[in-house]
Computed example of a mutant assay.
Amino acid sequence: MKFSCHLILSILLLSSCGDTGIEPIDNYILLHDNSSKVWLIDKQLDGDKDYTPLQFEYKDLIVFHESQNAYFHRLKDLGTKPGIKMGFWLDQSKNEIGFKGTKKDLIFEIISLTRTKIVLKPKHKSFKYTIVLIPFPEY
Protein backbone atom coordinates (compact mmCIF):
# COMPACT_ATOMS: atom_id res chain seq x y z
CA MET A 1 0.00 0.00 0.00
CA LYS A 2 2.75 2.42 0.99
CA PHE A 3 4.74 1.56 -2.14
CA SER A 4 1.78 2.14 -4.46
CA CYS A 5 1.10 5.57 -2.91
CA HIS A 6 4.72 6.58 -3.52
CA LEU A 7 4.55 5.25 -7.07
CA ILE A 8 1.34 7.15 -7.88
CA LEU A 9 2.69 10.40 -6.37
CA SER A 10 5.95 10.04 -8.30
CA ILE A 11 4.12 9.48 -11.58
CA LEU A 12 1.86 12.50 -10.96
CA LEU A 13 4.81 14.76 -10.14
CA LEU A 14 6.89 13.65 -13.09
CA SER A 15 4.06 13.92 -15.59
CA SER A 16 2.93 17.35 -14.38
CA CYS A 17 6.40 18.88 -14.74
CA GLY A 18 6.98 17.82 -18.33
CA ASP A 19 6.10 21.06 -20.15
CA THR A 20 7.47 23.57 -17.67
CA GLY A 21 10.65 25.46 -18.30
CA ILE A 22 12.61 28.32 -16.90
CA GLU A 23 12.11 31.61 -18.68
CA PRO A 24 15.22 33.77 -19.00
CA ILE A 25 15.33 37.03 -17.05
CA ASP A 26 15.18 40.22 -19.08
CA ASN A 27 18.48 41.88 -18.13
CA TYR A 28 16.83 45.31 -18.24
CA ILE A 29 15.08 44.30 -15.02
CA LEU A 30 18.47 43.94 -13.31
CA LEU A 31 19.19 47.58 -14.19
CA HIS A 32 15.91 49.23 -13.20
CA ASP A 33 13.83 46.70 -11.17
CA ASN A 34 10.70 47.46 -13.28
CA SER A 35 10.71 51.08 -12.11
CA SER A 36 13.95 52.87 -11.30
CA LYS A 37 17.10 51.88 -9.50
CA VAL A 38 20.01 53.93 -8.18
CA TRP A 39 23.49 52.56 -8.81
CA LEU A 40 26.65 53.98 -7.24
CA ILE A 41 29.81 54.09 -9.34
CA ASP A 42 31.90 52.31 -6.75
CA LYS A 43 35.11 52.02 -8.77
CA GLN A 44 36.69 53.80 -11.74
CA LEU A 45 39.56 51.72 -13.06
CA ASP A 46 42.11 52.24 -15.81
CA GLY A 47 43.95 48.96 -16.09
CA ASP A 48 45.41 48.32 -12.65
CA LYS A 49 45.09 51.97 -11.53
CA ASP A 50 42.12 53.05 -9.41
CA TYR A 51 40.83 56.58 -10.06
CA THR A 52 37.84 56.37 -7.72
CA PRO A 53 37.28 59.58 -5.73
CA LEU A 54 38.31 59.06 -2.11
CA GLN A 55 35.59 61.26 -0.64
CA PHE A 56 32.15 59.69 -0.86
CA GLU A 57 30.38 62.92 -1.88
CA TYR A 58 32.49 63.13 -5.06
CA LYS A 59 31.34 59.74 -6.32
CA ASP A 60 28.79 59.52 -9.12
CA LEU A 61 25.41 57.83 -9.42
CA ILE A 62 23.50 56.43 -12.34
CA VAL A 63 19.73 56.18 -11.99
CA PHE A 64 18.26 53.71 -14.49
CA HIS A 65 14.56 54.07 -15.31
CA GLU A 66 12.22 51.56 -16.92
CA SER A 67 11.65 54.14 -19.69
CA GLN A 68 15.27 53.44 -20.80
CA ASN A 69 16.49 56.81 -19.59
CA ALA A 70 19.48 57.09 -17.29
CA TYR A 71 20.45 60.09 -15.18
CA PHE A 72 24.05 60.71 -14.13
CA HIS A 73 24.52 62.66 -10.87
CA ARG A 74 27.45 63.60 -8.66
CA LEU A 75 26.50 62.90 -5.04
CA LYS A 76 27.48 66.37 -3.79
CA ASP A 77 25.23 67.99 -6.43
CA LEU A 78 22.22 65.74 -5.86
CA GLY A 79 19.14 67.88 -5.29
CA THR A 80 20.83 71.12 -6.33
CA LYS A 81 21.72 70.43 -9.99
CA PRO A 82 19.84 68.31 -12.50
CA GLY A 83 21.52 65.14 -13.61
CA ILE A 84 22.72 64.48 -17.12
CA LYS A 85 19.97 62.61 -18.96
CA MET A 86 20.93 59.92 -21.45
CA GLY A 87 18.95 57.17 -23.12
CA PHE A 88 20.39 53.70 -22.66
CA TRP A 89 20.17 50.39 -24.46
CA LEU A 90 21.23 46.85 -23.72
CA ASP A 91 22.31 44.60 -26.59
CA GLN A 92 22.70 41.05 -25.32
CA SER A 93 23.85 39.72 -28.71
CA LYS A 94 26.86 42.08 -28.58
CA ASN A 95 27.18 41.86 -24.78
CA GLU A 96 27.08 45.63 -24.48
CA ILE A 97 25.28 48.51 -22.87
CA GLY A 98 25.29 51.97 -24.36
CA PHE A 99 24.29 55.48 -23.37
CA LYS A 100 23.04 57.89 -26.02
CA GLY A 101 24.71 61.25 -25.51
CA THR A 102 24.23 64.62 -27.18
CA LYS A 103 27.86 64.75 -28.34
CA LYS A 104 28.82 61.08 -28.44
CA ASP A 105 27.60 57.69 -27.30
CA LEU A 106 29.21 55.82 -24.43
CA ILE A 107 29.46 52.10 -25.21
CA PHE A 108 30.57 49.47 -22.71
CA GLU A 109 31.23 45.74 -22.83
CA ILE A 110 29.35 43.98 -20.04
CA ILE A 111 31.91 42.11 -17.96
CA SER A 112 29.43 41.23 -15.20
CA LEU A 113 25.72 41.93 -14.73
CA THR A 114 23.99 40.81 -11.54
CA ARG A 115 21.54 42.30 -9.04
CA THR A 116 24.40 43.32 -6.77
CA LYS A 117 27.21 44.34 -9.12
CA ILE A 118 27.72 45.53 -12.69
CA VAL A 119 31.16 45.78 -14.29
CA LEU A 120 31.36 47.74 -17.56
CA LYS A 121 34.48 48.09 -19.71
CA PRO A 122 34.51 50.90 -22.30
CA LYS A 123 34.48 49.97 -25.99
CA HIS A 124 36.03 52.02 -28.79
CA LYS A 125 37.63 54.40 -26.23
CA SER A 126 34.19 55.92 -25.62
CA PHE A 127 34.98 56.41 -21.91
CA LYS A 128 38.20 56.58 -19.95
CA TYR A 129 37.45 54.09 -17.15
CA THR A 130 36.09 50.64 -16.51
CA ILE A 131 33.30 51.24 -14.01
CA VAL A 132 32.00 49.04 -11.23
CA LEU A 133 28.42 49.78 -10.18
CA ILE A 134 26.75 48.63 -6.96
CA PRO A 135 23.21 49.35 -5.75
CA PHE A 136 23.19 52.55 -3.74
CA PRO A 137 24.06 51.45 -0.19
CA GLU A 138 21.92 52.07 2.86
CA TYR A 139 23.76 53.98 5.57
Rank of each mutant, 00 (worst) to 15 (best):
M1A: 15
F3Y: 08
C5M: 13
C5K: 12
I8M: 13
L9V: 06
S10Q: 11
I11R: 10
L12S: 12
L12V: 13
L14Y: 11
S15I: 10
S16L: 13
S16V: 09
T20Y: 14
T20I: 15
T20L: 14
G21N: 10
I22T: 13
E23H: 13
E23D: 12
E23S: 14
P24T: 07
P24N: 08
I29L: 10
L30A: 03
L30Y: 07
H32Q: 11
D33M: 09
N34Q: 15
S35C: 08
S36K: 15
S36A: 15
K37C: 04
W39Y: 02
W39M: 00
D42G: 02
K43Y: 01
K43P: 02
D46L: 14
G47N: 01
G47Y: 08
D48V: 09
D50P: 00
T52Q: 01
P53E: 00
P53W: 00
L54G: 00
Q55H: 11
F56H: 01
Y58C: 02
K59Q: 08
D60C: 09
L61T: 01
I62V: 09
F64E: 05
H65G: 09
E66C: 10
Q68V: 07
A70W: 04
A70H: 06
F72K: 13
R74G: 01
L75F: 03
L75S: 02
D77I: 05
D77P: 03
G79R: 11
G83V: 00
M86T: 08
M86C: 07
F88I: 00
L90K: 00
D91H: 05
S93V: 12
K94H: 09
K100M: 12
K100E: 13
G101V: 03
D105H: 09
D105N: 12
D105C: 06
L106G: 01
F108M: 11
F108L: 09
E109V: 08
E109Y: 11
I110C: 03
I111H: 04
L113T: 02
L113V: 04
K117W: 11
I118Y: 03
L120C: 02
K121G: 04
K123N: 09
K128M: 14
Y129P: 05
Y129V: 07
T130G: 02
I131T: 06
I131C: 07
V132D: 04
L133S: 07
I134R: 06
I134G: 03
E138F: 11
